[in-house]
Write a protein that binds this DNA or RNA. Sequence first.
DNA 1: CTAAAGTCTGACGTCAGTGTCAGAGTCCAC
DNA 2: GTGGACTCTGACACTGACGTCAGACTTTAG
Lengths: 125, 125
Amino acid sequence: MKIGELSRRTGVSQRALRYYEQQGMLAPHRRESGYREYGEDAVGAVRRIRTLLAAGLPTRTIAEVLPCIVEVSDEDVASTCPDDLAVYLADERTRISDAITELQTARDLLDRILESRSAAADAHP
Amino acid sequence: MKIGELSRRTGVSQRALRYYEQQGMLAPHRRESGYREYGEDAVGAVRRIRTLLAAGLPTRTIAEVLPCIVEVSDEDVASTCPDDLAVYLADERTRISDAITELQTARDLLDRILESRSAAADAHP
DNA sequence: CTAAAGTCTGACGTCAGTGTCAGAGTCCAC
DNA sequence: GTGGACTCTGACACTGACGTCAGACTTTAG
């Protein structure tokens, strides 16, 4: 498929898709004309890119880890993942867990604010 | 206290503290000399700023929500929080929950990668 | 065949949250 | 009172992940 379709199917802008390619995270084939040609697997790849980007992993890391992922129906299986990368990924995993905790703290804070507000509304109906 | 002490006590750089002020999130008193003078409550305020920044709230929103927070020992209570802000905060709450889900998805992906890797190591010891 | 729609590269803009540096003024312990 | 530590403002730099625009080329529907 061409870039427009991939963009529509993933919800990711064409600009972003080109950026992903520039960063080595995607490598579509090219037609004679220079048009990018993406395979079906690009949809899953883009989905993973978004997930890892949202988790704060740098593009370089994502570019390294994506080749480790082989699609098996809906599950992902890593094959040739070098040791040093695995160590780094374990660090990232820790960072993500910490981030989750922080977000939960933030959400709790918002909850307390919103809750005490509704409590005040109850007091002055 | 002056900015150096607040920086040490919060682990936040002086540059960042000045930026927070510029964005209206902090409003320290000033000495005759122009030196910033922070109260004890600034420590908690900075802690909340970090939490909400980490959660992706924009500085403008944080500047609006901080005055809603009145310290009650270790709990926070909102007082005069305008309706429209509350609506917006509820949206942010949703966004944060979504972000947590995304992070968990990313962590699961990393787990599958790391797990299948150790499985491969077991297969070829 | 033609016009409209799609795509290309390249470059500059943006935004948040700082880092860093310069040059000048201030504080405080001795 | 002095010297070293601290603080001030202002400005420019930087990073990441894109947005946006220009100008040229390609594809596709009719």
